[in-house]
Amino acid sequence: MTDDVILQVKDLKAYFKLDEGLLKAVDGVSFDLRKGETLGIVGESGSGKSVTNLAIMRLIPSPPGHIAGGEVVFMGDDILKMSDDGIRKIRGNKISMIFQDPMTCLNPFLKISTQMIETIVLHQGLDKKAAKEKAVDMLKLAGIPAPEKRIDQYPHQFSGGMRQRVMIAMALSCEPEILIADEPTTALDVTIQAQILELINELSERLGTAVILITHSLGVVAGMCDSICVMYAGRIVERGTADEIFSDPRHPYTQGLIKSVPRLDKVSTQRLYSIPGQPPNVINLPDCCPFFPRCERAMDVCKTKYPKVAELGDKRTVACWLYGEGK
């Protein structure tokens, strides 16, 4: 199992140079992704989840952003060191991405067919006709009714959920190794959210695609993910398998997140828990644990130094002064 790691992110850093100062949106993130695995990345808004994944695809808007260090090893090669042509052969082909807001992510001026066909023609070398057939097949797989007809329509003729299905069909049309799904359901109705997640789950299993699922709620990843990374202020604070994270959360932040997930099995009359305070503004953060102002178990050391990452077992880490040598 350990040997089929297809993506290895090591100490990835992505910074934005802003007027107010240096914004360390991602500051030393590391994780592995195995073949066919589903990895959840969880964290509050602004914790750097999207930037991490844009950095993997080298899609960070620059200026103001740039990748300040680290490695992203995909099937043996470091993506960050590739030529522009090299990375383009991977984008949309080996690694594809779907984004948060399906309303704005499809080009409103082009037909769905044009947008789908161009990817297939580019990466699979099919002619237009064959590519269109493939696109229709993908739409059908993604659960679009009457795909032959709808493929020649424009995005505004689709509902939000349908557009996200189109995005999924488009992203999977070249049967990529990795699908990065950046909060694919946040902008959708609750009823549709479950369907979309189910679709991603089903298609990725069928195609053997590994998935990085980004979300800010642990509830979403619970049923779907094999392993989970919890991000806070640009860093991964805890990492482990889904079972470990849910049955034995170590970091106070993870514990807070889990407490704030609504539970169906425990009927409770109490109000849902929420972590007090706001996530920090990560511009010019001092060297400290960025969570300490909101942490119930904060100690003096938390205010002066970022905690060492403690290895608690195979691929199980936590960055908190409560664990490791600090304890």
């Binding site: 984008r91 992510c105 082009l110």
Partner: peptide, 27 residues
């Protein structure tokens, strides 16, 4: 060029010149 749909086009692996010509100019 900063819009979401152009990011999508880049994420598909299109060349920057194609992105500009096909996805940016009209809008």
């Amino acid at each position: 060029m900063r819009s979401d749909y152009v990011r999508t086009a880049r994420a598909k692996g299109l060349k920057e010149s194609v992105v500009i010509r096909k996805h940016v100019l009209k809008g």
